[in-house]
Design a protein around this nucleic acid. Structure first.
Length: 472
RNA sequence: GGUCCCAUCGUCUAGAGGCCUAGGACGACAGGUUCUCAUCCUGUAAACACCGAUUCGAAUUCGGUUGGGAUCACCA
C-alpha cells in the first residue's frame, strides 16, 4: 500500500499555524514511507471564499519546505484537486445514495429547522429532528433546482464505532445524530460528502485532522459504508491552544503564519517547535532537523492532549537555530528579512555592505529573532538620534578619550580597548561606568554588541566624529 | 444543556503497578565568566486536579467528581 496523506485547507483567510502543524506530520509520514503528500483545496463554501488565500497556503508550505506532491497548482493523477471543480462528481454520488435509499430530498428551510431544534432544547431533549425531516417524501422530478438539499439518512439505534489512531475506539449513538445535508441547494457538497468522496477517489490512506472533526467522523464512517468503501485510518490531533489554554482562534495574532515570519522566526525552528506539540522525540532530543523527524515520526506516537503554545520556548529554539546558522547563510536570511519588513533599513545596510557583513558575527549569539537585528545594529549605519544616558556630565571624559583614540594608529579592537583602558585609569573612573558611557556615546544604547569590535568596524574617523558631536 | 475528547512542575513532556523521596527541556530565581547584553557553566524552587475502589504496593488500573477543550449549520 502506498501511503498518501493530505491537508485539506479552505481558502477562507490567512494560512493558519494549525494547518502547518497538520502538514508537518502528514508530510513527514508520507516521506518516511515514500508516499505522497497532497494538498486539496476545499472551497465548497462560496460565501467564505477569499481571493488569494489559496496562493498564500502554497507560499506558506514553500516557506517551510513542506512542498506537496499533488495539488491544484501541481496536478497529478487525481485531478482536479479543487472541490469547486468536482461538483459533478459529488452530485453523482449524492444521487447514488438517494437511489440506494441512504439519502433523500429535503425542502425544509434552515430557519424552520432551527425553530424545531430550539423547541427540543427547551424541553431538554437532544436537538435531533430526524422524525420531522423524514416525513418528507419528495421525488426529484417535482423539485425545482435550488429548492432542495440532499440529506443522508442516519440509521436508528446503532452504535457507531470510530477507530481513532491516537484515541482508540470512540463510540457514538446514532440516535443523537441529525440527518446531515450532503448536497446543498446551490449544488455544492457539504464537507462531509466531499471529504469522503475525495479521500476515497484520491486514495488517501491516513487522515490526520484536528479534533474538531471527531464528532463528524461517525457520519463519514456511515458514508463509507453506504458507498461500500473501506475507510482510511483516522488520527485526530488536539487543537493547538493559546498560552491560557483557550482555542487558538483566527483572531489571535500568532495563529497566523505571517506573524511568525514578521517576528523573524526561522521556518525550521518553527517546525522543530511544532513537532514537540503532542509528540516527542523517542530520545527526548530537543533540537532536530526535518530529515531526522522524518526518520522517527509515526502517527501512532501522537498524544491526545491539547498543548498550549509557549512563545518563550519557541524563541529559545529560534535562537539555537540562529546560532547554528552558517554566517553566509545568516547574511542572506537577515538581508531577505530586512528587504521584506524594513525597506529603508535594507537600503541603508546594503549601502554599507562590508559593515553589514562584519556586524553579523557580533550579533549572531545575541538575537533570538530576526526582528531584533535592526534595533540592535542600526547604529552601525546611522548615528544615534538620542542617548539612553545623559551625556552632559561626561564631556570632559569623552574629550580625554578622543585624545587617546587619536593616537591609535593601528585601528583594531584590541588596541582600541587598550587605549580606553588607559583613559579610564587616568580618569580614575569606575570601569563599568566608563565603558557604559562609551557604549551609549557610540551606539546610543545601554545594550549593544561588543564595544571594541563595534568601534573597530565603525572606523576611527566615524568614532571620533561621533564623540566630537556630543562634545559640541 | 446533550454527546465526545483530555488531565504529571508556569509551559512542552518522560513515566505503560514496585526502578519515582517523579526525570528532561523552556521559562523563573541565584551564582560564576564578563566593560553592557547575549553566549557558556553551576545550582535552587517548581507537578502526579480531587474522592473512592482494586492491590502487599498506584502518577501508572477501574468508577465518580471537578476542570479544560471540541461538537451539536445548506461552515469547514
Amino acid at each position: 500500500m502506498i501511503v498518501r496523506t493530505r491537508i485539506a485547507p479552505s481558502p477562507t483567510g490567512f494560512p493558519h499555524i494549525g494547518t502547518v502543524y497538520q502538514a508537518l506530520f502528514d508530510w513527514a509520514y508520507a516521506h518516511r514511507h515514500q508516499g505522497q503528500f497532497i494538498v486539496r483545496i476545499e472551497d465548497t463554501d462560496q460565501s467564505r471564499f477569499v481571493v488569494g488565500a489559496e496562493d498564500k497556503i502554497y507560499a506558506a508550505l514553500d516557506w517551510f519546505g513542506l512542498g506537496e506532491d499533488e495539488s491544484p497548482r501541481k496536478n497529478g493523477a487525481f485531478s482536479p484537486y479543487k472541490q469547486s471543480e468536482r461538483l459533478d462528481i459529488y452530485k453523482k454520488y449524492a444521487e447514488e445514495l438517494v437511489e440506494k435509499g441512504y439519502a433523500y430530498y429535503c425542502t425544509k428551510k434552515p430557519e424552520e429547522l432551527e425553530i424545531l431544534r430550539q423547541q427540543k432544547r427547551v424541553r431538554k431533549l437532544p436537538p435531533v429532528i430526524n422524525e420531522e425531516l423524514r416525513m418528507q417524501k419528495h421525488k426529484k422530478d417535482s423539485l425545482s433546482p435550488g429548492s432542495y438539499v440532499i440529506r443522508m439518512r442516519i440509521p436508528d439505534n446503532e452504535r457507531i464505532i470510530v477507530n481513532d489512531g491516537v484515541r482508540g475506539e470512540i463510540v457514538f449513538d446514532s440516535n443523537l445524530i441529525d440527518d446531515q445535508v450532503i448536497l446543498k441547494s446551490d449544488g455544492f457538497p457539504t464537507y462531509h460528502l466531499a471529504v469522503v468522496v475525495d479521500d476515497y477517489l484520491m486514495k488517501i490512506t491516513h487522515i490526520l485532522r484536528g479534533e474538531e472533526w471527531i464528532n463528524s467522523t461517525p457520519k463519514h464512517i456511515l458514508l463509507y459504508r453506504f458507498f461500500g468503501w473501506e475507510p482510511p485510518l483516522f488520527f485526530h490531533t488536539s487543537l493547538l491552544r493559546n498560552p491560557d489554554k483557550t482555542k487558538m482562534s483566527k483572531r489571535h495574532a500568532h495563529a497566523s503564519v505571517d506573524w511568525y515570519k514578521e517576528q523573524g522566526y526561522l521556518p525550521d525552528a518553527i517546525l522543530n517547535y511544532l513537532a514537540h506539540m503532542a509528540w516527542r522525540h523517542p530520545k527526548e532530543t530537543e533540537i532536530f532537523s526535518l530529515d531526522e523527524f522524518v526518520q522517527v515520526f509515526d502517527f501512532a506516537d501522537m498524544k491526545a492532549v491539547g498543548p498550549a503554545f509557549d512563545l518563550k520556548k519557541l524563541e529559545w529554539m529560534n535562537g539555537e537555530y540562529l546560532r547554528a546558522t552558517e554566517i553566509n547563510n545568516l547574511k542572506l536570511i537577515i538581508e531577505n528579512y530586512l528587504k521584506e519588513y524594513g525597506k529603508d533599513s535594507y537600503e541603508l545596510a546594503k549601502s554599507k555592505q562590508n559593515l553589514f557583513n562584519a556586524s553579523l558575527p557580533l550579533i549572531q549569539e545575541r538575537i533570538k529573532k530576526l526582528s531584533e537585528y535592526w534595533p540592535m545594529c542600526s547604529f552601525f549605519f546611522t548615528r544615534p538620534s538620542s542617548y539612553e544616558l545623559s551625556m552632559e556630565s561626561y564631556i570632559s571624559s569623552l574629550k580625554k578619550t578622543i585624545e587617546g583614540l587619536q593616537n591609535v594608529s593601528d585601528w583594531n579592537a584590541q588596541v582600541i580597548g587598550e587605549s580606553m583602558q588607559k583613559t579610564c585609569e587616568s580618569l580614575a573612573a569606575k570601569k563599568s561606568d566608563y565603558f557604559m558611557m562609551m557604549r551609549v556615546a557610540i551606539t546610543g544604547h545601554k545594550i549593544s554588541p561588543p564595544l571594541n569590535e563595534s568601534m573597530e568596524l565603525l572606523g576611527k574617523d566615524e568614532v571620533i566624529d561621533r564623540l566630537r558631536l556630543i562634545c559640541g
